[in-house]
Every structure is written in C-alpha cells, then in structure tokens.
C-alpha cells in the first residue's frame, strides 16, 4: 500500500510543517516515508509545497506525478495541483480561502473551513494542524495518537496547554472530514 500526497499553499501557512508531521508520524508507525519540500527563494509569502510518500514497501520515487491526496491551502495551489490528483483520489481544500471551481468529478473533495475552525478554537495558527487531522481521517493511515506524539516530538506540544490545543485541533479536523466524507458518500 502506497499513499502519495502533496501539501501546497503560501509560505507561512505551515505547509511544510504539515508534511513533516505527517511523514514523522508515519515513520513512527513503522512505514517507509519520504518527505520532499520545495519552496521559493523567499522565506515568507512565496509558494510552498511538499510531497510525502508513505508506503509499506521500498519507495521508488519521492516525486509524485499523480498523488492520491492533495492538500490545497490557497487558490494558486488549486489551479496548479487539482488536475494532478489520481482518479479516485482525494482533494482536501481549505474552503475558507479556496473558492475556485473544481472541475473534476472523479475525485473526492473534502472542504475544511480552516480559518473559521481555527478561530473557534481560539488559535488562528492551528489551521494546519486541523488539516492534518482531516487528512488522517481521509487516509485512515495515520492514527490521531501517533500524530499527537509526533507533534510533541517536534516541540509543538511540549507545553501541556499547546498540546491540548493541538489535540483538539486534530479532532476538529478529523470530525469535519468524517462529516464531509459521509455527505459525499450519501450524495
């Protein structure tokens, strides 16, 4: 079983961190992983994306032509990556910021209103963690428990208060994705 995913958005949205936490979690769960970041020369505000491959076998290419999951955090990323999703794949979009039309009918779309959800949580910066929660739900490969440990390992959950916030962010993301997927199925 191999899952290829691309995370894309503006620099500063925590795009690379999303990918890194995903890769770290999968590694701690005993999977083979590759994490390949790509970004512009600027440190903030440029485009950023990364490719994560999670597999039970040896990973051939760390570059994905047709990812199974694409996480889209802004409009330019939708334009660039929407057509790359493999047929039957899943597009997770930050529906607070991404409003473009999605012309694919062979992929599952999971809208997650990250900005609103993060605001409700009381921490706008938790948007990317919410998205990782949604991804975990959509893939079924990452466990929420392992994600929490990975967050603690990266220093994002060392303080009990921050850990608690991120734990809730993961759950909010997972719940949102669960509802969206159920709706998609019944539609």
């Amino acid at each position: 079983m191999t899952n290829k995913m691309i995370f894309a958005g503006f620099g500063g949205q925590g795009v690379l961190l999303m990918g890194f936490i995903t890769a770290l979690t999968a590694m701690r769960q005993g999977k083979n992983v590759t994490y390949l970041p790509a970004y512009g020369a600027e440190v903030r505000g440029g485009t950023a994306n990364c490719t994560v491959v999670i597999s039970d076998e040896e990973i051939a290419s760390p570059v994905a032509s047709n990812p199974d999951y694409v996480i889209v955090m802004n409009n330019p990323s939708l334009v660039r990556f929407a057509n790359m999703v493999a047929p039957g794949g899943t597009l997770l979009i930050n529906s607070s910021l991404v409003h473009g039309e999605i012309k694919r009918d062979d992929v599952t779309v999971v809208p997650v209103p990250l900005n609103e959800l993060a605001h409700e949580l009381g921490e706008d910066r938790s948007a990317n963690v919410i998205m990782v929660g949604a991804l975990a739900q959509a893939t079924g490969v990452l466990s929420i428990e392992a994600l929490k440990e990975a967050l603690a390992e990266t220093g994002l959950g060392k303080k009990p208060k921050v850990l608690e916030l991120n734990r809730r962010a993961l759950e909010v993301g997972a719940n949102t994705a669960r509802q969206a997927l159920a709706k998609e199925k019944s539609a």
């Binding site: 890194f20 890769a23 083979n32 992983v33 994490y35 390949l36 970041p37 990973i59």
Partner: peptide
Amino acid sequence: GMMGQMMEP
C-alpha cells in the same frame, strides 16, 4: 538539491 532537502528515516 533534492537530496539536500529530502527527509527519509
């Protein structure tokens, strides 16, 4: 550069 940036276990 790709190997420079890539992370694997």
